[in-house]
Design a protein around this nucleic acid. Structure first.
Lengths: 125, 125
DNA sequence: GAGACTACTTCCCTTTGGGAAAGTGATACC
DNA sequence: GGTATCACTTTCCCAAAGGGAAGTAGTCTC
């Protein structure tokens, strides 16, 4: 086949794209990471307990775990404040902020999707 | 507090955003859905076996399951062709194509991320 | 009629993810 | 000194996710 090299090229490009998508999914893995990033993108800075209240339903274990993983990946910073009872501030790094386009697209699509589903239900009635 | 209503508004907006992000994550749940959509976005139309080869590592069980879920959500169409041995074409719907911005952002970020990580490794040496 | 190709499904098993609840330790309030 | 707050950690448990292998069914080839 004369298309062999072309197909090869397409496969490599495709494969790299798929790998990249996978990498991003890994970074945003877990039930809460995308939402934590969304919160920190909206509020700039949040304490542990504030996040716990904002993310209704999350347990302390999960919150700690997800925050640690985000910190390890360089997406957020953790700073211990020396307040009366100590508090901890979490903030997006500039690298973490680079995920904002993805989060925004996800929020946008999710809103449209919900609108579409509700539209379909009311149309049926 | 005079900020009560303002905080309330912020919470509601935030909560709706978080819910939307969650909805989108659900639609793209599973190890392979985002990649399947990426493939179909690149190639327009692919057969079951072609997808199986393209998505190196996926088993037939997972591929079937993920494709079914995508079809149920109205993101892809399944058309049986009456070829010698029957073949089945999968294609993105226009609704499925509306996920392209998310997939593209994910691919883009993943590429940059890999570049950054490799850069950090070579800098250390 | 044996084997191959297509597109699956079914069964079984292991791994992972994630939640609830309780515990920890430091500090502060009353 | 009892209780509260903040920020966790630890333990235990269960459901869901995902993989491998084999089976099914229809058609075509040799």
């Amino acid at each position: 086949m004369e298309t062999k090299s072309v197909d090869g090229q397409i496969s490599v490009d495709c494969w790299e794209r798929l790998r990249a998508i996978n990498d991003t999914k890994d970074i945003l893995s877990g039930k809460w990471k995308a939402m934590i990033i969304a919160c920190l993108a909206s509020f700039e800075k949040k304490r542990y307990m504030e996040l716990h209240r904002l993310l209704a339903g999350i347990g302390t274990k999960m919150l700690s775990k997800e925050l640690q993983e985000l910190e390890i990946n360089g997406l957020i910073t953790r700073t211990v404040m020396d307040t009366k009872p100590i508090t901890v501030d979490y903030e997006l790094t500039s690298y973490g902020r680079s995920l904002k386009p993805i989060i925004d697209e996800m929020a946008l699509w999710g809103m449209h999707h919900r609108g579409k589903i509700i539209g379909e239900i009311t149309k049926k009635k």
